[in-house]
């Protein structure tokens, strides 16, 4: 009896805490959506938690046009696709070399990636700006692509965890068939890392999507705005109109949420690494 009593207690606690977590996560999002659907009248007359009397999608249209969100989405998508593809390629290459081979400077390379994590990037902008300008990439999307391209310690860690679970015997049998290391990478390692790559791609997409500072700095032309900068620019003159700002915020949240819903299976599969386990 004691045991089942404990079970009921734990079960209740489990669900109760999950529901609290759910509420804390969803409440701000819910408020944003409700506010975005309120007309100016409803916004000033109704309580904040009250639902709008009738749904007003006008805010969405104003936000879309006023914030120039269409072109912002295109610019962002272009940058994300190029960066993520390059990023995955480079990340898998580094992780492959680091986990499959022993060589003298290996520790140094890993250490270098770790140290870089601690540099407050916002303070190095003057020098980075010089590099970007020297390469002739200032005020082009390629400036950002190049900045986002480099891999980082978290990616390397995720990939290395994965590669370590790919049995070395697979490599060896390929070698018996006469495959080169390059071929082992392209036809065994890279494909088997796909689930991890899905994770890496999502994480990278999120960080690029939310980056505010680099686009301002390296792509200041208004026509090259990305979603974060478009949202900031939109907020300036409209900061009194919360229904508009919430509409713009919701619009900008939607693409990644959709992407997430579709890719969810792959993301978690990637992270929990079931795919490569034997």
């Amino acid at each position: 009896m004691k045991r089942s009593g404990g079970r009921i207690f734990w079960g209740t606690l489990k669900y109760a805490s999950l529901l609290v977590g759910l509420f804390v996560v969803l409440f701000p999002i819910w408020i944003a959506v409700v506010t975005s659907l309120k007309s100016n009248q409803d916004l000033s007359n109704l309580g904040i938690l009250q639902l709008p009397r009738h749904l007003d999608f006008g805010n969405y249209i104003t936000a879309w046009n006023g914030g120039d969100l269409g072109s912002a989405f295109l610019n962002t998508a272009f940058i994300i696709v190029l960066s993520v593809v390059g990023n995955i390629t480079l990340g898998t290459m580094v992780a492959y070399v680091l986990s499959r081979f022993e060589f003298p400077l290996k520790k140094l390379v890993l250490g270098a990636y770790l140290v870089v994590l601690f540099i407050p990037t916002i303070t190095t902008q003057v020098a980075v700006f010089g590099v970007i300008k020297g390469l002739g990439l200032f005020d082009t999307p390629f400036a950002l692509v190049l900045l986002y391209l480099g891999t980082d310690v978290v990616q390397i860690y995720i990939y290395m965890q994965f590669i370590n679970r790919i049995p070395v015997s697979l490599d060896e049998s390929a070698m018996l068939d006469g495959a080169s290391y390059l071929r082992i990478y392209t036809s065994i390692i890279f494909p088997l890392l796909m689930p991890a790559s899905a994770t890496v791609a999502i994480l990278k997409t999120i960080s690029i999507y939310g980056d505010l500072y680099s686009p301002y700095l390296y792509m200041p032309s208004t026509s090259l705005g990305v979603v974060s900068t478009a949202l900031m620019r939109f907020e300036g003159p409209y900061s009194a109109q919360w229904n508009l700002i919430m509409a713009a915020s919701v619009i900008i949240a939607i693409p990644l949420v959709l992407l997430y819903l579709f890719l969810q299976r792959f993301i978690f599969a990637g992270i929990v690494s079931g795919a490569v386990r034997e």
């Binding site: 977590g21 969803l26 701000p28 999120i206 939310g210 974060s228 915020s249 949420v257 997430y260």
Partner: peptide, 21 residues
């Protein structure tokens, strides 16, 4: 999926939502 949701939202949008909240 729901608990992971906030991480998916655009960082600037999140800041504005909480500013309002």
């Amino acid at each position: 999926a729901t608990l992971f949701l906030p991480y998916m939202l655009n960082a600037v949008a999140v800041a504005f939502i909480f500013k309002f909240l």
